[in-house]
Amino acid sequence: MVIKMGAVREDAYERIRILHEAGLVSKKVAEFCHDTINMVLEERPDADEEKFAMFVTHLAMRTQRVIDKKEENPLQPEVIEALKEESSYEKSCLFAERILGTIDVKFPQTERDYLIVHLCNLFS
């Protein structure tokens, strides 16, 4: 299990390094993502590798989008209502706030909602 978690962490770090070196995310975003990778893997060391990779990529790109002041289309109200029915919804909301509290960037509700979707996916 420790080996797997280490490999998942290293793969995630590599993913962020590639995004940063390609100029798609800033150093600030890369550092935020590294911190978040560690937080999530502490909470969910058995995270599904595919879901985790998708989460990390989306987190990096969304955070950069927020910093660049590019707006995303909001989730449909039906999607948000269905999300609230997920067993991992409350935990995901609390964890999202914990994550967002580690960076001095104000995430609009739309981006918070997308983060919660990905966390529900990871924690389910």
Rank of each mutant, 00 (worst) to 15 (best):
Q64H: 08
G101S: 10
P74K: 02
E43A: 10
T63H: 07
S87L: 06
Y89Q: 01
K70V: 14
E49H: 10
G101F: 08
V25D: 07
E42W: 05
H118R: 11
N73K: 15
E81F: 02
I3G: 00
S26A: 06
A53Q: 11
I16L: 11
H34T: 09
P45V: 02
L119G: 05
C120A: 11
N73G: 02
I80R: 06
L122W: 09
H20G: 04
K84G: 05
M1Q: 03
E50W: 11
N73H: 10
I103V: 15
I37R: 04
E14F: 12
Y13A: 06
K106L: 12
G6A: 07
K27A: 12
M54H: 14
D104F: 11
F55L: 04
K106Q: 13
S26K: 03
D48V: 05
F32W: 04
M54L: 14
L41H: 05
F32A: 05
E31S: 06
L94H: 10
E71V: 10
E21Y: 12
C93H: 01
V66H: 09
H118I: 03
M1T: 01
D113G: 06
I103H: 03
R15M: 10
G101N: 08
Q109P: 01
A7C: 07
I37V: 13
Q64T: 04
I18P: 02
H34G: 09
T102D: 12
R44K: 15
E71N: 10
M39Q: 12
M1L: 03
R62C: 04
K69Y: 12
T102V: 07
L122C: 08
V8K: 09
I103L: 07
A96R: 11
P45H: 02
N73L: 13
C120T: 15
V29Q: 03
V66I: 13
N73A: 14
V105E: 01
V79P: 00
